Simulated scan of single mutants.
Amino acid sequence: MRGDPELTVLRLGHRPGRDERMSTHVGLTARALGADRVVFAGKAEGPKETVTDITDRFGGPFDVEVSDSYRPLMEEFDGRVVHLTMYGLPVQEVEEEIRSTHRSGPLLVVVGAEKVPFDVYEAADHNVAVTNQPHSEVASLAVFLDRLHEGRELDREWVDADRRVIPEERGKRVEGTDER
């Protein structure tokens, strides 16, 4: 988010054909809830295309990348690494420490798909659980980002949007930005 150090979401283990929708939702959630970019590790051209299209239409800034491997990003990342896993420490016990760390430097948030390799657990500075029960990585990412930003991401201003959603109690309304 503007004014904060970089926040990157890394989607591990995208499986083409199986994870298209889930990976897309990881990217859309990252964008909507305050990340600066998402990196899909695997052959994720479909999710990349969808998230890029949404960013083009509804505004940014937000970057989308695809990488053959997660390892170079994790090894070369100049900041703290948070791995979201149901096996980690409860988010409510570590969120303030992570928030404080993020105020002074970049943060990489890792979310898995298939079984996460053990080296990810070892490389992470924080293994964090939103709950220690089975759940969706999209839900985990959403809860984590909201706690990290303390709700500030919900009032974010979007630039270079072609359209915007007009909040209504009932119904759906989307206007072009030139209709103001």
Rank of each mutant, 00 (worst) to 15 (best):
H126N: 07
H83K: 13
I54Q: 13
S23M: 14
R80P: 00
S100A: 12
Q133M: 08
S67E: 15
P61F: 05
G46W: 07
V143K: 07
V94S: 12
A35S: 11
V120M: 01
S100Q: 15
V82T: 08
L10I: 14
E76S: 12
E122L: 03
P106M: 00
L89S: 14
V26I: 15
G79Y: 08
S104D: 14
L10E: 14
A32T: 15
G79C: 06
G46S: 09
A32V: 09
D162G: 01
L141A: 05
V82H: 03
V130H: 04
G27L: 09
V130T: 09
P134H: 06
E122C: 00
A139G: 13
K48V: 04
H135D: 12
L84K: 03
E97K: 09
R163P: 00
D78P: 00
L107M: 08
L84C: 04
D146M: 05
E45S: 10
Q92V: 09
V116H: 03
K115L: 02
V39I: 12
E96M: 06
T29W: 05
L12Y: 08
Q92T: 12
P117T: 04
R15M: 01
D125C: 04
V109T: 06
Q92F: 06
R173N: 10
I166N: 14
L12T: 08
R15I: 01
E168M: 11
D36L: 00
S67W: 13
R37P: 00
G105V: 11
V110F: 04
L107I: 11
V66P: 09
E20S: 12
V81S: 02
H135R: 10
Y87C: 00
L141N: 07
D146Y: 11
P167S: 08
F62E: 04
G46R: 13
V39D: 02
V110S: 03
R156M: 07
A139K: 05
E6S: 06
G59P: 03
V159G: 07
L89D: 15
A129H: 12
D146P: 00
L7V: 15
G42H: 15
D53H: 01
Y121N: 01
